[in-house]
């Protein structure tokens, strides 16, 4: 049931996976010249300065045809439309919920965006303060972020536990086409939802399996830059 949203989350984060086919990537610091020449266009995280395309942020520079962009690899979560995130309800207002998603501006989940009809007088029975919710980012504006619950796998997360990893490690934890997260799900028998903001929810038969899943996820998050990670995780499970 969670499969769908994992794949969606994966697609949104795919461009951040560090090993990709045939594209040149190299580490770059802000202000560094990436390429020289009029043939190139600055994309995300890059700008033009005279003849040069210069990095505006720290990360990996990538040439995709004529477009030069810098991919973020460190730092805080930057929300994008269609990201699936996990958040905590911090307030119930008359027409929706305020959700904490680890971002500077507040995010709002309107009542109208709940998947089924919720009576205004019984909103806190659907989502109360402190509840964990999986939602999709509907829009990102300077005033704030709007969320929606319409979509597969979205909604209140009941039971289980939530922990945090660096949001930049999320693509690795999900893996190509969700391979890594599916492996961890198979081996532990847990339901897992990964938010693009680095919040991870696990629910298993018992606490032991949840802890095992959490350890596996943290292992993957720690070893973010090593090759053959899937084999390593399989080995780790075999030892357990």
């Amino acid at each position: 049931m969670m499969e769908e949203d994992i794949n969606e989350a994966h697609e949104a984060g795919e461009e951040m996976v560090s090993s990709s086919e045939g594209k040149k990537r190299r580490a770059i610091v802000p202000g560094e010249i990436i390429v020289t020449g009029e043939d190139f266009l600055p994309g995300d995280g890059a700008r033009r300065e005279g003849d040069n395309v210069v990095a505006s942020r720290f990360g990996l520079a990538e040439e995709a045809g004529r477009i030069i962009k810098v991919i973020a690899v460190t730092g805080s979560f930057i929300p994008r439309r269609n990201n699936v995130i996990l958040g905590r309800v911090i307030d119930v207002t008359f027409n929706g919920w305020l959700i904490d998603i680890d971002y500077a501006s507040s995010s709002f989940l309107p009542l109208m965006e709940s998947p089924r009809f919720v009576n205004k007088s019984e909103m806190d029975q659907f989502l109360g303060i402190g509840d964990i919710v999986a939602a999709k980012i509907w829009s990102v504006k300077s005033k704030g972020i709007d969320l929606t619950l319409k979509g597969k796998g979205l909604g209140k997360m009941e039971g289980g536990m939530v922990f945090h990893i660096s949001p930049n490690r999320v693509p690795r934890v999900i893996g190509r086409e969700g391979s890594m997260i599916n492996l961890i799900k198979d081996k532990t028998g847990c339901d897992i939802t990964v938010g693009q903001n680095g919040w991870i929810w696990v629910r298993g038969e018992n606490v032991d399996s949840e802890i095992k899943a959490r350890q596996a996820v943290e292992l993957v998050a720690d070893k973010v830059h090593t090759e053959g990670l899937t084999e390593q995780v399989e080995e780790w499970f075999a030892k357990k």
Partner: peptide, 11 residues
């Protein structure tokens, strides 16, 4: 600041 991914012109 660079490590935090803040947009910067230079170091």
């Amino acid at each position: 600041l660079a490590h935090a991914g803040i947009p910067m012109k230079n170091l």
